[in-house]
Design a protein around this nucleic acid. Structure first.
Lengths: 159, 159
DNA sequence: TATGAAAGGTTGAACCC
DNA sequence: GGGTTCAACCTTTCATA
């Protein structure tokens, strides 16, 4: 349900909020789109209700924040418990993102941050205790965030 | 430079903005922390200047938005060109995130979305043309976003 | 989807510790 | 240098059409 049905205005809104969710006001988007600010607000509300816009998160550079160890921990979960275990993994202190992938093995990718190797040992232990088998662990050097470019319409590129 | 030096207020701010970057006003945070809204604003500005807060992005459920194919494309880049190639990969339409990891091989992880398999074939081709060797490709089932829990201080848990 | 008035948030400058 | 206060301005909210 709720698939498709995105028009140009929806896409423009999503794109704008991907670029800067905090400083982009409804009015800014409205001016770009040629509609009124309340229309934009209504659309945003609808996109949130439909679960298309799930939230707005600050993008934190953990390395600069003093958490030098940012790692990707590749795990294997029994397929029937994958979703449940992925959700539980998020509760472990230091875990900042969990991705479920559809491979047989290596089907849960956990991103975690810490200040020293003790943190990461602990996180590895916690994951194992949950029932997630840690199969690989790599330092993440850098993350580049994009927005889905095809959402771009008419005007854009504020900055 | 600019490492450490985060105090409780900084951590409270970061945590609040990780939870909801769009609807959390300086005043809300200020009330929680017992300081004035402008103090919070000043701190946010400083965190942005230091590169600790890099931006605020909408969290889009691409599947519900009609882009059913969300995939993780694991690539290998020659180490000296890894950073450059990772940045270029972001420019490919459909690519939404690129992670550089420190392994020898499989050192660039690309997340991409598309509506059909043609999109993904094209993206794979584009990555190869850039100089990124595609070594694996998996459907992403779900992404869970967390905030770094140790940023929590004193009060929290609004919702 | 648009309009308009009231409530509340943000901004920047001047001021204090 | 960092925190506060205050007034002008902008944004959101909600009722209304």
């Amino acid at each position: 349900m709720t698939l498709e049905g995105l028009d140009d205005l929806d896409r423009l809104i999503i794109h704008a909020l991907q670029r800067n969710a905090r400083k982009t006001s409804s009015k800014t988007i409205a001016d770009r789109a040629g509609v009124s600010p309340s229309t934009v607000r209504n659309r945003i509300q609808r996109l949130e209700d439909r679960g298309i816009l799930r939230g707005y998160h600050a993008d934190v550079d953990y390395e600069r924040a003093g958490y030098q160890l940012h790692t990707l921990i590749v795990c294997t979960a029994p397929v029937p418990r994958r979703e449940e275990l992925a959700a539980s993994a998020l509760e472990i202190p230091g875990v900042v993102r969990v991705e479920e992938v559809m491979t047989g093995a290596e089907n849960v990718h956990v991103s975690a941050v810490g200040t020293d190797s003790d943190d990461l040992s602990r996180i590895g232990r916690d994951l194992n205790e949950l029932g997630l088998e840690v199969v690989d662990e790599d330092i993440i050097r850098n993350i580049h965030h994009g927005s889905y470019t095809e959402f771009e319409t008419g005007a854009e590129d504020g900055t």
